[in-house]
Design a protein around this nucleic acid. Structure first.
Lengths: 161, 161
DNA sequence: TTAATGAGTTCCAAAAAAGAACCTACAAAA
DNA sequence: TTTTGTAGGTTCTTTTTTGGAACTCATTAA
């Protein structure tokens, strides 16, 4: 399968990855959440090549994750800011960071602390069921074909013993 | 910055992406969570080339996300299964799927429903604060340098108005 | 007049992915 | 006994994507 066909799959993971599933996009978005808005700042902080940065920012704008807004005329200068759709990616980044804190940290511990403004504590994200509020792990969930699945092959293969 | 240097950054997101941040790895893991365990099944379901699949499975085993276990001798056949570290990636996948369900679904709605076995409802994941249990959005969190940050540059740039 | 700045674009070399064919050890079928 | 099939790869060639550096353009600052 070619990468461009990914967004046509009846799979929300595949569709999401068609937007953020490359090597650089989520790092760019991390910086967006830290307040970075300008081309040159992204470039300097990430060590990304200008060509790739141009391409990724353009794609994020096309997908409605970022929008451009002028912060100065003559010469015109634009900055990149998160849309509502982009802000919704925060849970994705937090989930990735949380896994890295737990499984990839060196002996000095997590590099960044997340403080919940409302309660004032250093927090880590917990995923709970929207219906009953209980914490979720992989074993707690069963999948079923939904409306967008249509008449396709069964969801699961037969490798499971 | 070269991709191989990514895991040395003092950033848990960068370190996590050094494991799962390429085009195919999270799709492979999605299938693992659906019960797929064999080389040939991954290949057929994903339409991935054998070369890339071999490489990704090897890396996931090296990182302790999957492990190989023989399900048959003579001829020896091995299958790939999630470790505890791998199972912990479930929240990441669920967060990505949830974003896709909300922002990338076509008019037929979500392709896959997630049923919480304990309460029996179709759920979507909700991220809450580990300390106070309140739901989290991007605006609710402030970052601070943690122990693993050491004496580096300030976390945030100055683009924020 | 020269230099600097921000946000790119252009060009070339290197690396990674796509696609197809080939390999190996065994088993079952004709 | 030769052929066919299978699981899990490896090898080869072509295409696509990155990395890295240099160049552009409009405007302001020294």
């Amino acid at each position: 399968m070619r990468w461009e066909e990914l967004d046509q799959q009846p799979c929300s993971l595949a569709r999401t990855l068609s937007v953020v599933g490359d090597r650089w996009t989520l790092l760019i978005l991390r910086d967006c959440f830290l307040g970075v808005r300008r081309f040159e700042t992204f470039e300097r902080r990430l060590g990304i090549t200008r060509h790739v940065l141009t391409d990724r920012l353009k794609k994020l704008v096309e997908h409605g994750v970022l929008y451009k807004s002028a912060y100065q005329e003559r010469p015109r200068r634009e900055e990149y800011r998160l849309t509502g759709k982009g802000l919704d990616l925060y849970t994705v980044i937090l989930a990735l960071v949380n896994w890295g804190d737990k499984h990839m940290a060196d002996d000095r511990g997590a590099p960044v602390k997340h403080i919940h403004k409302a309660c004032g504590h250093a927090m880590h994200p917990q995923m709970v069921c929207s219906e009953c509020g209980e914490p979720i792990t992989a074993r707690d969930i069963r999948v079923e074909a939904g409306d967008g699945w249509q008449d396709r092959a069964p969801l699961v293969g037969s490798d499971r013993s």
